[in-house]
Computed example of a mutant assay.
Amino acid sequence: MKPAPILAAMAALAATASLSTAPAVAQGENFGKPNKSERACFYASNVRGFDAVQDKVLNVKVGANDVYRMELLGSCPNLDYANGIALMSRNSTFICAGLDATIVYDGPNGPQRCQISQISKLTAAEAKALPRDARP
Rank of each mutant, 00 (worst) to 15 (best):
K2Q: 10
L7N: 15
A8E: 13
A8S: 13
A9M: 08
M10W: 13
A12W: 07
L13Y: 13
T16I: 10
A17Q: 14
S18L: 11
T21C: 03
A22M: 09
A22P: 04
A22Q: 11
P23K: 11
V25K: 10
Q27N: 08
Q27K: 12
G28Q: 10
F31Y: 14
F31H: 12
G32P: 07
K33I: 12
K33Q: 13
P34W: 04
N35M: 02
K36E: 07
S37Y: 08
S37W: 02
A40H: 13
C41S: 05
F42D: 03
F42Q: 02
Y43H: 06
A44R: 01
A44T: 09
S45H: 03
S45V: 09
N46P: 00
N46G: 00
D51M: 10
D51A: 12
A52I: 01
V53F: 05
D55F: 00
D55N: 07
K56A: 02
V57S: 04
V57K: 13
L58A: 03
V60N: 01
K61H: 08
K61N: 11
V62E: 04
V62T: 06
A64C: 01
N65Y: 07
V67A: 03
V67P: 02
V67R: 03
R69I: 01
R69N: 09
M70S: 02
E71T: 15
E71A: 08
L72N: 05
L72R: 08
L72E: 02
G74L: 10
N78V: 10
N78L: 06
L79M: 13
L79F: 06
L79R: 09
D80E: 14
A82M: 09
A82S: 12
A82P: 07
I85P: 05
I85Y: 03
A86F: 06
L87E: 04
M88Y: 08
S89R: 14
S89W: 01
R90P: 00
N91L: 11
N91K: 15
S92M: 08
S92W: 07
S92H: 08
T93V: 11
T93N: 14
F94P: 00
F94I: 02
C96D: 04
G98P: 04
G98A: 03
G98M: 04
L99V: 11
D100L: 09
D100I: 05
A101G: 06
T102H: 06
T102M: 13
T102S: 11
I103P: 04
I103Y: 05
V104Y: 07
G107N: 11
G107D: 08
P108M: 07
N109C: 04
G110H: 10
G110E: 09
G110R: 12
Q112P: 00
Q112R: 14
R113G: 00
C114L: 09
Q115A: 15
Q115I: 10
I116V: 15
S117E: 13
I119A: 01
S120T: 15
K121M: 13
K121D: 05
T123F: 09
T123S: 15
A124V: 14
A125N: 14
A127N: 08
A127V: 06
K128I: 09
P131H: 12
A134L: 04
A134W: 15
P136L: 09
P136A: 12
